[in-house]
């Protein structure tokens, strides 16, 4: 029983990290980034390739995953962060799709659609039992807390104040002599690093990566998690990830109560409800579960 719960909590932890990264970028800095899955993918593949082809250890691979994603964010930022917010949304959406297509096409590097198997996890000394799963979960939860706390510190720092000011009124910031561009790039890179780190964790957790894990659906799920939890709160990001994932995963247990519904219908109902929840949250409780009526 517990190994399954550990698995679900592990997924919540990984998606929690992803939602935090988005919360930093959008909630605090106002960047409408619809391409987060692209950084997630870059991190995952970096960890996978270093771990399997180059024989790196899991810790080094995780660090590299964050680094690769952060570095990838630089050209993206340079090209797009001066754009109006809706264009930024569309461009980042396209970016993530191009990442996926590149993974599929450049199979000399990525093994294409076959994916990469045999990615090693940390804590190899613990064998293959439940202790190892628990250790990995502990790692993720510690990372989650550290990232949330770290981000909390950052947003209360002078840098954080600038970033929030940029979100609220860009022109005022310029008038005060500060150029919004560089702080935005830094935020994009930091968020990308967190997303890439989450990707590395997922790659090691499942032990396998393939391009069909990195579709825009992932981006939309973390956006939904962020909005339902509350965009202006790091706690909200984690809560949102938990709520959305528990709902998506937990609804399989409803099937015993609803024997006449087919699996397709149940899956459709799940996603339709998620879409509806997003609409209702934006309409009536824009601050999310944690934020309340605080309109964003």
């Amino acid at each position: 029983m517990s190994s399954y719960l550990i698995a679900v909590t592990t997924q919540i932890g990984i998606y929690g990290l992803l939602t935090l990264s988005l919360s930093l970028q959008y909630g605090y800095t106002g960047l409408i980034n619809f391409g987060q899955v692209g950084f997630y993918a870059i991190g995952a593949y970096a960890a996978a390739l270093l771990g399997t082809a180059l024989g790196w250890g899991p810790w080094g691979s995780l660090a590299a995953a964050a680094l690769f994603a952060a570095v990838a964010a630089v050209p993206i930022g340079l090209l797009t962060l001066r754009l109006r917010e809706d264009y930024l949304a569309i461009v980042t959406l396209g970016f993530a799709e191009v990442v996926r297509l590149t993974i599929v096409a450049e199979d000399w590097l990525t093994n294409g659609t076959a994916g990469i198997s045999g990615i090693a996890r940390p804590f190899a000394a613990l064998g293959v039992g439940i202790e190892r799963d628990l250790a990995f979960l502990a790692l993720i939860l510690v990372a989650l807390v550290l990232v949330a706390v770290g981000l909390g510190v950052i947003v209360r720092s002078p840098f954080g104040r600038i970033v929030k000011a940029i979100r609220d009124d860009e022109d005022a910031v310029r008038v005060l002599g500060k150029e919004p561009f560089v702080p935005r790039i830094k935020v994009l890179c930091l968020g990308a690093a967190i997303a890439g780190f989450a990707g590395g964790l997922q790659a090691q957790y499942i032990g396998y990566v393939g391009p069909d894990q990195f579709i825009s659906y992932v981006t939309f799920i973390i956006w939904i998690a962020m909005i339902i939890g509350g965009t202006r709160s790091f706690l909200g990001a984690i809560v949102g990830a938990g709520v959305v994932l528990l709902f998506l995963e937990g609804s399989r247990f409803l099937r015993d109560e609803l024997p006449d519904i087919s699996e397709t219908a149940l899956a459709s109902a799940r996603l339709a409800i998620v879409g509806l929840a997003l609409i209702l949250t934006m309409l009536y409780r824009p601050g999310g579960l944690v934020g309340g009526k605080d309109a964003r």
Binding site: E85, T264, S268, V274, G275, L278, M282
Partner: peptide
Amino acid sequence: VAPLVVSIGLAFLIRNTLTF
């Protein structure tokens, strides 16, 4: 961002109501 995000939610809702 409000109508944009809501339109994504609407897209999910329409598509999945159809497949339901």
